[in-house]
Design a protein around this nucleic acid. Structure first.
Lengths: 186, 186
DNA sequence: GTCTATATTCCGATAGAC
DNA sequence: GTCTATCGGAATATAGAC
């Protein structure tokens, strides 16, 4: 695996999460790397190709995190907090998450890229609903809603609060996260 | 006020809410109207100009709705439900709200357009925090959080659930809205 | 295998016709 | 006042050089 290829994936992801998919160009990436924009096409023939690869990389990273938490026997609270920490980091870096940045552009994505975005979003949503279900069963979490629905509410809050925090002045992202946590306490 | 001008505003708003700001072009609008793309530039010299006007129109519409609810003496529940109905309509039409579609693109907007988006978002957020505050004082709503923070949570849920509903299959948007409402009941 | 020169298309925008 | 012909530039992408 080429180093340039990895750098392109990383730069591309950051560009999507700061400027958006339809606003960044191969030029943005090539300039940063000190090469011509066409060189990027060698690694990723088309933009759709790059977009899909970026999402695939993220899915892989997410699944590795899940595996890691399982092997370390994290309970539901630890898992949720690890997940939320990803968002707090995004907020600190003034970036959106991939779902929140690509989601609004879904109607402009190719079928393969769209399919990958759907896959990623459903994996995260399904995982979140899973820990909410088992956490509720073990009386670690307390809430009335259907876990599926509660997962949607929490996921939505995390995603859109990142978006709002870049718009609204003096936005307290950590307070939002704290509310999500408090709300689940028995 | 020209009819063409109004149609451009309407088409532009729909394009932003379906494809996103950086994905639509003056061509999209002019084709729909059966004119040349340059004709659109007569009404809106630049895209930034059109974007700003679209947001201004939305702010006006929102403020008229608020005034209307006040003059009809809507209580906090009626106001909240009227607000949520806007989102249910957006969901039915498979469109995002303006904040949820323009928000992720904020770093690509001109200063004037950005300022207008900030204004619109803060107006909505501030209004929502307001009815939550008075609703809590009058024991019409029940929640522990700071109203400001609760407003963020609810606003975020509405915004991002629209985004997620276009990605995730069999997404129950009304259930999300119902949860928001249930959660506030005393 | 890695990258550059170059083509093509489309975008936003101006100048000017009616 | 309303719209069209047309420009300059940027975006994605191909063909081919090293």
């Amino acid at each position: 695996m080429s180093v340039t290829r990895e750098k392109i994936i990383e730069l591309g992801e950051n560009l999507i999460r700061t400027k958006g998919y339809n606003a960044f160009s191969y030029q943005d990436i090539s300039t940063e790397l000190g090469i011509k924009n066409a060189a990027v096409h060698y690694y990723f023939p088309s933009k759709e190709n790059l977009g899909t690869s970026i999402i695939k990389t993220n899915i892989q990273r997410f699944e590795e995190m899940i595996d890691n938490m399982h092997s370390r026997k994290f309970d539901e609270w630890q898992q949720l907090e690890t997940f939320i920490k990803i968002y707090i980091k995004s907020h600190r870096e003034q970036k959106l998450c991939l779902v929140g940045s690509l989601g609004p552009d879904i109607n402009t994505l190719s079928n393969t890229t769209k399919a990958e975005l759907v896959k990623m979003t459903e994996i995260i949503h399904h995982w979140l609903a899973g820990i909410l279900t088992s956490g509720k069963m073990n009386n670690i979490f307390s809430f009335n809603d259907e876990p599926q629905n509660k997962a949607t509410l929490i996921f939505s809050c995390l995603v859109a609060s990142l978006q709002l925090s870049r718009i609204i002045d003096k936005f307290d992202y950590k307070a939002v996260c704290q509310s999500i946590i408090e709300d689940l306490k028995p």
